[in-house]
Amino acid sequence: MSGKVENIVWHNSSIAKIERHEKNKHQSFVLWFTGLSASGKSSVANALAHTLFEKGKQVYVLDGDNIRHGLNHDLGFNEQDRKENIRRIGEVSKLFIDSGQIVLTAFISPYREDRDSVRKIVEKDEFLEIYVKCSIEECEKRDPKGLYKKARNKEITQFTGISAPYEEPLEPEIVLDTEKFSIEQCVDQLIDALNAKHLI
């Protein structure tokens, strides 16, 4: 391991992040959507991405299921693999930020420590934790993929909220209550928050 580190040298980009900001006319950052399965993370993230794209912003969504089809196809759902899943996504998000883009991540990311570890690898104000708040009861009612039913029947183990823990954010930058508000209303709340922070 140490040999690998010793033989790797960081190469600075010929284009500075600030230059990308100036060209794109917006800051680059990650909105880290966290919440239970079926809380609405992907739906809100993709709706926001479309709105930002229509406004001429450089934006991309990293979705939990999609990432597990490729980059993280070798990971399972035990605690160690979940941590590695988030670590990798954090590093990918950092690259997107460096490229001047807005990155929206939709991952359950159940552990506070893992979410905080991503916050620490980017600069101040480049990480906004978005808690997509929705009760386990409502998520089970929605259950679009039938996962809660399988988890209750013990066909799926290590399922967040049922047989594995979810640690709610203690001080998220934004809370979206998807039981009270529609996807469109949540997007409006996010746009208002980003404007208030002068990020877009």
Rank of each mutant, 00 (worst) to 15 (best):
E126D: 14
I130E: 06
E140S: 12
E123T: 03
P144S: 01
F159I: 04
T160D: 13
L128I: 13
S182R: 03
Q158K: 14
A164I: 12
T178R: 14
K180D: 00
R142D: 04
S135V: 05
E167F: 06
K180P: 00
Y148M: 13
E126F: 04
I156T: 02
I162M: 14
E171L: 12
D177Y: 09
I130H: 03
R142H: 05
A151G: 03
E171G: 03
P144E: 00
E123R: 11
E137G: 06
D143E: 09
R152M: 11
D177E: 12
K145E: 03
V175H: 00
V175S: 02
E129I: 06
C139Y: 11
E173V: 02
Y131S: 11
S182P: 07
Y148L: 13
D177Q: 07
Q185F: 00
Y131N: 09
C134K: 10
V132E: 02
K141L: 12
K124D: 14
D143N: 07
E171R: 13
T160C: 09
E155T: 07
P165A: 13
Q158E: 15
L170Q: 15
K145D: 03
S182K: 03
K141G: 03
D177H: 09
L128M: 15
S182M: 05
K133C: 02
P172E: 05
K154Y: 01
E129A: 10
A151D: 09
K149D: 10
P144D: 00
I130L: 02
E155N: 09
E138M: 12
V122D: 13
C134E: 11
D143T: 09
C139N: 12
L147C: 08
E138S: 07
N153P: 00
R152C: 13
D143S: 08
S182E: 00
I183G: 03
I174G: 04
K145Q: 08
K124M: 08
